[in-house]
Simulated assay, not measured.
Amino acid sequence: MYCYPRLRDLREDQDMTQAEVGCLLGTTQQQYYKYEKGIQEIPAHHLIVLADYYHVTVDYLLGRDTKNL
């Protein structure tokens, strides 16, 4: 199982649904749900899009860094 502890928090902070984030990534709500729950590994290109969108680092998204930009 993969671990993406901050995806849900960042999404909710922006008042976005899983479907909206899925659309941002060019994928489905169901696929994004799998990323958020750690069922499936999120591709690097999706991490980059999310980091840019949320104005944080990829390391922050992955839980490797406690600071954001």
Score class of each variant (00 low, 15 high):
residue 19 A to T: 04
residue 56 V to I: 14
residue 4 Y to I: 03
residue 7 L to Y: 01
residue 60 Y to D: 00
residue 24 L to E: 10
residue 49 V to G: 08
residue 25 L to P: 06
residue 6 R to W: 05
residue 33 Y to K: 11
residue 41 E to F: 02
residue 48 I to A: 12
residue 16 M to Q: 11
residue 13 D to H: 11
residue 33 Y to P: 00
residue 43 P to T: 11
residue 34 K to R: 12
residue 16 M to K: 13
residue 28 T to R: 07
residue 41 E to N: 04
residue 57 T to C: 10
residue 11 R to Y: 01
residue 29 Q to M: 03
residue 8 R to Q: 11
residue 57 T to S: 15
residue 25 L to S: 12
residue 51 A to Q: 04
residue 63 G to S: 11
residue 20 E to P: 00
residue 38 G to N: 00
residue 21 V to L: 06
residue 63 G to H: 06
residue 22 G to D: 12
residue 52 D to Q: 09
residue 59 D to G: 05
residue 61 L to I: 08
residue 58 V to R: 07
residue 11 R to D: 05
residue 47 L to H: 12
residue 38 G to I: 00
residue 18 Q to Y: 02
residue 50 L to P: 02
residue 49 V to T: 15
residue 38 G to T: 07
residue 63 G to C: 09
residue 50 L to R: 03
residue 68 N to Q: 14
residue 8 R to T: 13
residue 61 L to D: 10
residue 64 R to H: 10
residue 49 V to M: 10
residue 15 D to M: 12
residue 51 A to N: 06
residue 27 T to V: 13
residue 7 L to D: 01
residue 28 T to N: 03
residue 18 Q to E: 10
residue 59 D to R: 05
residue 58 V to E: 10
residue 46 H to R: 11
residue 46 H to Y: 09
residue 5 P to M: 09
residue 52 D to K: 08
residue 49 V to N: 05
residue 21 V to I: 15
residue 11 R to H: 03
residue 18 Q to K: 13
residue 52 D to I: 00
residue 13 D to Y: 11
residue 7 L to Q: 05
residue 17 T to M: 05
residue 11 R to N: 03
residue 65 D to S: 14
residue 7 L to H: 01
residue 33 Y to W: 06
residue 29 Q to G: 02
residue 45 H to C: 14
residue 11 R to E: 02
residue 53 Y to I: 09
residue 45 H to P: 13
residue 51 A to R: 06
residue 22 G to F: 14
residue 37 K to Y: 01
residue 36 E to Q: 11
residue 66 T to P: 13
residue 66 T to R: 15
residue 32 Y to W: 08
residue 13 D to T: 09
residue 22 G to H: 04
residue 30 Q to I: 02
residue 58 V to W: 08
residue 5 P to G: 12
residue 16 M to R: 10
residue 56 V to Y: 13
residue 12 E to M: 12
residue 38 G to S: 02
residue 30 Q to V: 01
residue 34 K to V: 00
residue 36 E to T: 11
residue 64 R to F: 13
residue 35 Y to D: 09
residue 12 E to T: 13
residue 39 I to E: 07
residue 67 K to G: 04
residue 39 I to P: 00
residue 57 T to H: 11
residue 54 Y to L: 05
residue 45 H to G: 07
residue 12 E to Y: 03
residue 67 K to H: 07
residue 23 C to P: 00
residue 20 E to L: 03
